[in-house]
Design a protein around this nucleic acid. Structure first.
Lengths: 226, 226
DNA sequence: AACGGCAATTTTGTATACATTTTATTCAAC
DNA sequence: GTTGAATAAAATGTATACAAAATTGCCGTT
């Protein structure tokens, strides 16, 4: 008795959600911009019903803000919100590391080791997108090794909100080198299965990332004001 | 130029969401039960459009599961999911405590001290609902003192999912006394502004709660099987 | 020019009709 | 009695019509 294949005949509400989400996190619709239903129905080629359902879903993800009777707007992210989100993510990343150190398998560790070399290669080539990709995969693997689906879901949700800030950060050479060094340490502590030390390091690692982004942001704001 | 009063003329979608959410977290609709649109439109006296929007919102909160083309069901919570959620909440509670120790004002501390006495009074009277209420208020105050709205939102979201498990736990006299003792310690560490110690204690406090609930659950499952 | 009221327009909120898919039922064949 | 195809019923997905609210633009007054 085979289980019926789920087959996800995607609903229009789902495709509208996905496409609109991409538009928002990639910054193709500016933060704070109004989401006019008529305009978006034309752009996405769906009727208002699935579009409005997409609004509700994205509001739940924190990407859209719903103003009763006054429409939907793309959620804005001020510096305080970014700081608060990273403060939380830093802790979650630390928890991930602590749990992963206890629960990771040798196979998973081997995969991370391989990704680490990919990352070093991208760094050596000054290939920033490649570096970001390998970096994200490593963090995702650690997260998966923590074996806590609620943690993973929560982390992903927060990460989505920050996606737009990702590529805006001015990664300096020193900061990049430092991040690479931190990753070497991360792998070592993971191999040693030293949970508490890995937690401390990963938390600091993410707080460093926060500071990098916040200071880039400040520079950009100053430049925009001038 | 006064900011326009928001005035929240509640939409039907919003009231439907609230009422359906209450029905779910209070267990008036069983976990796993199908949410038939026709039945619920009659029960809630709204048409399908706002009801379906409510489904999307509650799905985002993790209270409802959406099966494309096959309707919505109340999300189920197995023991593994409960354990994972508490594992995460324990960490978030610890983070709350650590941040609160750094950021709490004397006024907030005084409020918590007062709530602590309310809790002791409820304990002395063996007033369980009163105890739960005071207990929750204390945790909320600590959370607010952490000054991280993203943390607060995340915590509330997870808490909502566990709401139904709350009143199902068989709080024994010993566990109740232990919780009271832990709360005395919590207040002391908060007054001492000892972040790291408070984090450790709060994390353990919540892991204890997790164990209490998981063992009650096991007892109930065994009883149901017999 | 600034302000305020009023009508026209646009936009959001909701109900409902229709289309498509899933689920239940019937009934014949084995 | 079980199986399975065919059909009927019910449920979900989507578009759209209508209602209610908000926004815009106009015009006269100051």
């Amino acid at each position: 008795m085979n289980a019926p294949i789920p087959l996800d005949r995607a609903t229009l509400a789902h495709t509208a959600t996905t496409r609109l989400r991409d538009m928002i996190i990639e910054g193709r619709i500016a933060p704070g911009a109004r989401l006019n239903e008529r305009v978006l129905t034309e752009e996405l080629q769906v009727s208002r019903t699935p579009l409005r359902e997409a609004f509700k879903t994205l509001a739940g993800e924190g990407l859209v803000e719903l103003l009763p009777q006054r429409g939907a707007v793309v959620a804005t992210l001020d510096a305080a919100m970014i700081a608060a989100t990273y403060e939380l993510m830093a802790d979650l990343e630390g928890l991930s590391g602590e749990l992963a150190a206890q629960r990771i398998t040798d196979g998973e560790l081997a995969e991370i080791r391989a990704l680490q070399f990919d990352m070093l290669a991208s760094h050596a080539r000054r290939d920033l997108p490649g570096y970001f990709r390998a970096n994200m995969q490593i963090h995702n693997k650690i997260n998966a090794a923590a074996r806590n689906p609620v943690l993973t879901e929560t982390f992903q949700r927060l990460n989505l909100r920050l996606y737009s800030t990702r590529y805006r950060s001015n990664l300096t050479t020193e900061r990049w080198d430092q991040a690479i060094a931190e990753h070497g340490e991360i792998l070592k502590l993971l191999e040693a299965r030293d949970g508490p030390a890995l937690r401390a390091l990963l938390t600091r690692h993410l707080l460093n990332k926060r500071d990098t982004i916040l200071s880039s942001l400040k520079v950009q704001a100053a430049a925009a004001a001038a």
